Simulated scan of single mutants.
Amino acid sequence: MVRSFIKALAVCMVCSTAAFAQSEPHNFFATDDSGIPKIFFGGFTVGMNMSQVDGDTYSGYHKVGLNVGPLVYMRFNDHFGASMELLFSQKGSRERNYQEDAAGVGYVNSYDIKLNYAEIPVMLHYFSDKRFNAGVGLSYGYLVSSKEEAVTYAPVNLDTSIFSFRKHDIEGMVDVNYEFYKGWFIGMRFSYSLTSIRDGDHIPQAYGGGTFGGQYNNLFTLRLTYLIK
């Protein structure tokens, strides 16, 4: 899945290179048929989350998931605007490692947290020029489903009705976006939970991470966005 997404993104950018010099920066500075600057721009984004959960016993952005949905931009002037999105976003944690027991017998130790959110980010954007913009904002996420699995010598029962995650998540976000071809943007976003997604007393024993006092989503997202002129 990861390789396929990266290949598709690379092909899209390579195919656009030949026409890049002739392309005009488009959406945020477009006008209607009367020559009046447009205010609203709709589009769609598809991306890849690379996430971890701070407060478990592992580290590294090893969990890969989708980040996809429609969005709308509103331009205030030549330098400032805002956006709102409606996303399906997959987050969580993933770890695989090889260990040996006291007798020297090897086994694979694995751990997975799978969190699926319906998410509404609201961002403010600064346009430094006609191709580049940066944003900062907040996102509300509703947890649609969750699953937690661990395997050591044998599967571990991690019943989400006992070790439950919060249904609501508030995250802070920053991102940068670059229009590499008319209507097509590539962007990178960083997101972090401002409130815990699971309190310490709901974390399974031996799967809590020290002094965090809870667990928090921590992720980067690589995104490809198309805005309709």
Rank of each mutant, 00 (worst) to 15 (best):
V2Q: 06
V2G: 13
R3L: 13
S4E: 14
I6F: 14
A8D: 09
V11P: 01
V11D: 13
V11G: 02
V11Y: 05
V11L: 13
C15W: 08
S16F: 11
T17F: 12
A21T: 10
P25G: 06
H26P: 00
N27V: 12
I36D: 03
P37H: 11
P37C: 05
F41H: 14
T45G: 12
V46Y: 01
G47S: 06
G47I: 14
N49E: 03
Q52H: 06
D54R: 10
D54I: 13
T57A: 12
Y58I: 05
Y58L: 05
S59A: 05
G60C: 10
Y61R: 03
K63L: 05
V64L: 14
L66K: 10
G69P: 00
V72H: 00
R75C: 01
R75M: 00
F76L: 01
N77F: 05
H79N: 14
S83Y: 00
M84P: 00
M84T: 04
E85D: 07
K91F: 04
G92A: 09
R94M: 11
N97E: 14
Q99V: 09
D101T: 07
D101K: 04
A102I: 14
V105Y: 08
V105Q: 09
V105G: 05
Y107T: 08
N116T: 02
N116V: 08
A118Q: 06
E119M: 06
E119A: 10
M123G: 00
L124P: 02
H125Y: 14
F127C: 04
R131V: 06
F132G: 04
F132M: 07
N133M: 11
N133R: 08
N133L: 13
S139V: 02
S139H: 02
E148K: 02
E149Y: 08
A150W: 01
A150L: 07
V151R: 08
V156E: 02
L158H: 06
T160F: 02
I162H: 06
F163P: 00
F163Y: 15
F165D: 12
F165C: 03
H168L: 03
M173F: 02
V174E: 00
D175Q: 10
V176P: 03
V176E: 08
Y178D: 03
Y178F: 15
Y178W: 14
E179H: 03
F180Y: 15
Y181A: 15
Y181R: 09
Y181E: 10
K182Q: 14
W184P: 00
F185I: 11
M188Y: 10
M188L: 15
S196A: 13
D199T: 11
H202K: 15
P204C: 07
Q205V: 07
A206H: 11
A206C: 05
Y207F: 15
G210E: 12
F212A: 12
G214R: 04
G214W: 11
Q215Y: 02
Y216P: 01
N217R: 01
L219F: 12
T221C: 03
L222P: 01
L222W: 11
T225K: 00
K229M: 07
